[in-house]
Design a protein around this nucleic acid. Sequence first.
DNA 1: GGATAAGTTTAACCCAGGTTAAAATCGAAA
DNA 2: TTTCGATTTTAACCTGGGTTAAACTTATCC
Lengths: 198, 198
Amino acid sequence: MLQDKTEIDLLRTVLGHAGMKPEAFDLSLPYWKLKQYKKGDFYNEYKNVCKHLGFVINGVFRIYRVNSDTGEEKNMLFFTDHQFVTSYKSFLAQTACEYYTEAMVDSLILYIHIDQLNELYGQSHQWERFGRIVAETAFHEVMTNTEGFLFKTPEDRYREMMEKHPNIFNAVPLYHIASYLGIQGPSLSRIRKRMVGK
Amino acid sequence: MLQDKTEIDLLRTVLGHAGMKPEAFDLSLPYWKLKQYKKGDFYNEYKNVCKHLGFVINGVFRIYRVNSDTGEEKNMLFFTDHQFVTSYKSFLAQTACEYYTEAMVDSLILYIHIDQLNELYGQSHQWERFGRIVAETAFHEVMTNTEGFLFKTPEDRYREMMEKHPNIFNAVPLYHIASYLGIQGPSLSRIRKRMVGK
DNA sequence: GGATAAGTTTAACCCAGGTTAAAATCGAAA
DNA sequence: TTTCGATTTTAACCTGGGTTAAACTTATCC
C-alpha cells in the first residue's frame, strides 16, 4: 500500500494519525523538500546549528558524539523509518550541535526549514498542536531510552533492540550497537556468548 | 519582589516570559489549585495515572523507581522552584506511572487537571503553544540529564549539582544524590575524599 | 545532655567489564 | 577462488566500583 504513495502522501497519512486535518497539512506543501542520503553522508554535523526538521521516509541514521580529548565516538540514538530526525536540542535552541548524524544505509528524508515551521506554528493552531505532539513524542522516546539505560542491563537492551528494531540491528555493525548500549566490543561479545543456548 | 506576589501572579510572570499573553493566561484562572506538601508526602505514586500538571512554587521533589525484585530505590530526577513537575510519561500517555514522586522538604505546588489543560489547548492557540513549550522544555531537560549520564563522570555531575542546584543539594541526603548519580554510597564517599584539596 | 536514630565514611574483599593485542571470521572486490 | 580490509571473538590482565559490615559522625528528641 504505502509504496504506491508519494513521500508526501506518506507524511500526510502519518500526521493524519496524529490528528492533523488534510487542509491544515496542505499549508505546508510548498515547504517540504526531499533529500537522498548515501551511506556515510551526514544529516547534520558537529558545531552546525540544525535548521531543519526531517522525516525519515526510509533508512537508518545514527546520532553520535566524539570525545574531543580521546577522539572516541559514542552513539546516542538511532533513527529509522517514519521517525522525525533532527539534532533536537540544537534545533530547538538554535545552538551549535554537539553531535554528528550519519546515514548508516542509503536513506530518504523529507525535511522542512525551521523558519517555515515557525511560520506554520504562527498561522495555524493545528500546526502548533503538531509541534506539541512532535515534542511530546521526542520526549517520550528519549525518556524511554534513558530509562532503559538506567534500569535495564545491556543484555536486556541488546535483546530488545534485536527484537523490536531488526532493521536497525541489521543495518549497523555490532561495535556501533555496543557503543549504543554503553559497553565495549569485547563486552558485547561476552554477552552474545552467554546468550547462546538460552 | 516575587514574595509579594500571589502564587498565581508568579505563574503568570513565568508564563509571560515564555510568551503567553495575560488575557490567554486568564482563561486558566478557574482551573489552578494550590496544594501544600509536607516533607515525605507524595505528589504521585507508582501505578497511579498522573492526572495533573504541577508548577513548583517552592520546594524540592525527587522522582524515583523501586526495583520490584530487590526493593532498591533509584532516583531519576529532582524538581525544584519554578519547574513543572509531573510524571510526564504517565501524564502524556495517561498510563500507569512507574515512579514515585516525593517531597523532600515542605513544598508548595500550583496544579491543573489534564482535562482542563486539554480544554485550554482546544480553545486557545496560545495555550497550545504553551503545551509545546512545556514539552520542549521537558525534552531539553531530560536530554541534558541523559547526556550528563552518558558523557560525564559521576564526579563532574556531583560538582555541577553542588554548584548549580545548591537548594536541591542541601535538601537531600548524600545517599539520594549517589543514587541520582548512578553510584553507591561508598563510591560517592571515595569521590568526596578525592576532591578534598582540589 | 544523653540516648537513639539517621546519615556518612572507612576498610576489605570481589568481580564484571575495561583494555589491549592477537586470532579468527566474514565479505567484497579482483 | 584469493586476497585484503573490516568486523568480531578470544584471551590475559587489571582496575574501579560494587558489596558488606563496622566505625564514626551528626542530628533529633526526650
